[in-house]
Computed example of a mutant assay.
Amino acid sequence: MTTKLLSEDQRDCLQEIANVAMGQSADRLARLLDVFVVLSIPTVGILTPSDIAMTLQSLQSDDDSTNSLTGVCQGFIGGGIAGEALLIFNGTNYQDLAELLRYQHNRDIQNELLMDTTNVLGGACLHSLARQLDTQFSLGPPTLLGGSSDPTSNLQKRKVRWSEALVIEINYSIEHHRVNCDLLLVISENCIDGLLEKLDYLLE
């Protein structure tokens, strides 16, 4: 990882914005499911596609081969900023998630569970991020990553048109339930300057 494009002030500002967005999205999920959501400190950095694939691989528990990574990708654009939100589920017990969402769990609704959680967490986080940056994001339709293969392989096979991206990583887990996911907000390099301009305006 390299952070050469980010000054210390810009990094701190973006991390604080991400922290607020994370808190608001977690609060929405907590109220919806009547649970306590455990949060981590958001991380901010510049990553290559290979770095992102390695990050996803690191999320897979070595001692839990029965729970592979699954994920949902959703594009966003607005105010000169465009990117993708990747919500990656790791070590999640979908029976737990189904009960929290008041679904009768079966294999056929797993994808629906992932989509619904993405709509709550990803949507709330992105809209909060946009408000703080004084802009609006249009969100694309969420699409499943993986299928017969895991998200890491899926991402490695995708044709990306950037060599590095600004990535904000946020972890969510639900207390007393085996539900854990990481939200990666990936902003491609041709949009980083636009984001930095907004951060500089906020810092003035």
Results as ranks from 00 to 15, higher is better:
Ile17Arg: 06
Ala18Ile: 06
Met22Ile: 07
Gly23Ala: 03
Ser25Leu: 04
Arg28Asp: 10
Leu29Ser: 06
Leu32Arg: 10
Leu32Phe: 13
Leu32Pro: 09
Leu33Trp: 02
Leu33Thr: 04
Phe36Leu: 14
Val38His: 12
Leu39Asp: 01
Leu39His: 00
Thr48Leu: 05
Asp51Glu: 03
Ile52Gly: 09
Met54Pro: 13
Met54Cys: 15
Met54Thr: 15
Thr55Gln: 15
Leu56His: 01
Leu56Trp: 03
Leu56Arg: 02
Gln57Ser: 14
Gln57Glu: 15
Asp62Pro: 12
Asp62Trp: 11
Asp63Gln: 12
Thr66Ala: 15
Ser68Lys: 07
Leu69Ala: 06
Thr70Met: 10
Gly71Thr: 04
Val72Gly: 03
Cys73Glu: 10
Gly75Pro: 01
Gly75Cys: 05
Phe76Thr: 00
Gly79Arg: 08
Gly79Asn: 09
Ile81Arg: 01
Glu84Trp: 05
Leu86Pro: 07
Leu86Gly: 10
Leu86Phe: 14
Ile88Val: 13
Gly91His: 08
Tyr94Val: 00
Leu97Lys: 01
Leu97Pro: 02
Leu101Cys: 03
Arg102Leu: 15
Arg102Met: 15
His105Val: 04
Ile109Arg: 05
Gln110Met: 12
Asn111Cys: 11
Glu112Lys: 07
Asp116Arg: 03
Thr117Gln: 11
Thr118Arg: 03
Asn119Pro: 04
Val120Thr: 10
Gly122Phe: 03
Gly122Arg: 02
Gly123Glu: 03
Gly123Lys: 03
Ala124Thr: 08
Ala124His: 06
His127Lys: 12
Ser128Phe: 01
Arg131Ser: 15
Leu133Cys: 01
Leu133Glu: 01
Leu133Ser: 00
Thr135Arg: 09
Thr135Phe: 07
Phe137Gln: 12
Leu139Ile: 00
Pro141Leu: 12
Pro142Ile: 00
Gly146Asn: 08
Gly147Asp: 09
Ser148Arg: 15
Thr152Leu: 13
Ser153Arg: 13
